[in-house]
Simulated assay, not measured.
Amino acid sequence: MLKVDLKQKESIVILEPDGDLCKSDFKRASAIIDPYILENDKLNGLIIHVESFPSWDSFSSLLEHLKFVNNHHEKISYLAFVTDSSLGIFAEKFMDFFIGAEIKTFPFNDMQKAKDWILQLDNEK
Rank of each mutant, 00 (worst) to 15 (best):
P17K: 01
V69R: 07
D122P: 01
K27Q: 14
I99H: 09
F59N: 14
D122Q: 10
L87K: 10
I48Y: 01
E74G: 03
L63R: 13
Q8H: 06
L6V: 08
I33A: 12
L79E: 08
N109K: 11
K3S: 09
S24G: 00
G100I: 07
V4P: 02
I32C: 08
F97L: 13
I99R: 11
G45T: 07
K104H: 11
F97R: 13
F108T: 07
V82R: 10
K104R: 14
I33H: 08
I103F: 10
D41I: 08
V13F: 04
I47Q: 05
V13S: 03
V4R: 01
F90C: 08
E102G: 07
E16G: 00
A31L: 11
K104D: 08
E10K: 00
K93N: 11
F98H: 11
L46Q: 07
E10V: 01
G19E: 09
H73W: 07
Y36I: 02
K113Q: 15
D122E: 15
L121Q: 12
I103G: 08
L6N: 04
A114W: 11
N70V: 03
L121T: 10
F98L: 15
F81P: 05
V13W: 02
K3G: 01
S60E: 15
S60L: 12
S61Q: 11
K104E: 14
K9R: 04
A91R: 00
S52H: 12
L2T: 01
G19S: 07
S52G: 04
F59Q: 13
I12T: 04
D20Q: 05
K3T: 07
S30M: 13
K115C: 12
K104V: 00
P17T: 06
K75L: 05
S86K: 15
N109L: 14
V50C: 05
L38E: 14
K125F: 00
G88A: 10
S61G: 14
V4Y: 02
E92V: 00
K75Q: 10
V69G: 06
S85W: 09
A91K: 00
D20L: 07
K115P: 02
Q112F: 14
M111T: 14
A91W: 06
D116M: 05
I103W: 08
D25L: 03
M95K: 00
V82H: 05
F94Q: 05
Q8L: 06
A101C: 09
K3I: 04
S30W: 12
N71I: 00
L87F: 15
F90W: 09
I99K: 02
E10T: 08
L63K: 13
K27C: 07
D122M: 02
Y78C: 11
D122H: 11
A31E: 15
E92C: 00
S55F: 06
G45E: 13
T83Y: 09
K113D: 15
P35L: 07
D18Q: 08
H73G: 01
S61V: 11
Q120V: 12
N70P: 00
F26S: 05
I37F: 07
H49P: 01
D57C: 14
